[in-house]
Design a protein around this nucleic acid. Structure first.
Lengths: 155, 155
DNA sequence: GTTCCTGCAAAATTTTTGCATCAGT
DNA sequence: ACTGATGCAAAAATTTTGCAGGAAC
């Protein structure tokens, strides 16, 4: 798992990077950064907004999207789409784990995983492509252990 | 590239599979299957609907989504999300090429690629995961050759 | 004090649902 | 004929845009 320490550092890093880029640390941005720093897997924009509001702060949905967009463009946040029609976001911790996701076909639960061999394969692939590769995403689908144990047909 | 012959066969296969599963071959379904059979890379629901309409047939957007959903649940169509907030669909030809996509960071153009080594890595990974893996998607991002040649900053 | 950020509301997208009608078997 | 599929319209869900007021520097 990603260490709590590294995630805390990421919080400061993120605010620092934004500051140097000339962006102010307003309430919404700080709240989004702080909330993402406390999670170790991806959240939807909805969940992020609700998470902030449940902490007592009020935040506009638009501000959450704007903050996420900025963080994403700055390379501080990873945007992930897992096939449910919505995007998810997670902190991109430098030197932290680079992981991908398995999503359960039945219950939709998301589980992160790391795989160095897979990363190497993608790296080699990147050298072969004519694109100047900047990133990648892998999504694996399948029944999670719990759902596989009870293979009742989908209702 | 996927041969035109195989894609034509896929068209018949798809209708056959649906028929055996007790689904009728109505106008919308046939049109969606026929259109997908003629493409060798993914299309958005929007593009599919417009493609059918430009052929003279009238089709409801909802019917296109319903047809795509059915084809996807039946395993005849692959659903792909490339990070632009919308889903794309493409024929899943048995014995045909199994490919993934590179999407250009600047112009958004989608290019398919195949990589056996990557597939092997994912296969091995699947054996290591506790999930009963049913599928996977890989999306690579980066500047396409054309955009890399003219690296003006994003406006 | 200036400029950027924020919250709210409205708009734009994309996808789903309801329903009366029509078509496939 | 019976049943399921279709088109249209309305609704739902997600993301973006406009704008006046407020906060950061």
């Amino acid at each position: 798992m990603a260490s709590a320490r590294k995630r805390e550092e990421w919080s400061e890093l993120a605010l620092g990077v934004l500051g140097e880029a000339g962006h102010r640390a307003g309430g919404a941005r700080q709240a989004v950064v702080q909330l993402l720093a406390g999670e170790d897997c991806c959240l939807s924009a909805q969940e992020i907004a609700e998470g902030i509001r449940s902490g007592g702060d009020r935040v506009g949905t638009a501000s959450v999207y704007r903050a996420l967009d900025l963080l994403h463009r700055t390379g501080l946040v990873q945007r992930v789409e897992l096939g449910d029609g919505g995007a998810r976001y997670e902190a991109l911790v430098p030197g932290g784990d680079h992981h991908h996701h398995v999503i359960c076909d039945r219950c939709g639960r998301i589980t992160p995983f790391e795989d160095p061999a897979l990363e190497r394969a993608i790296e080699r692939l990147a050298g072969r492509l004519r694109h100047r590769v900047s990133g990648h995403d892998v999504v694996v689908r399948g029944l999670c252990p719990g759902c596989a144990r009870t293979p009742r047909s989908r209702s």
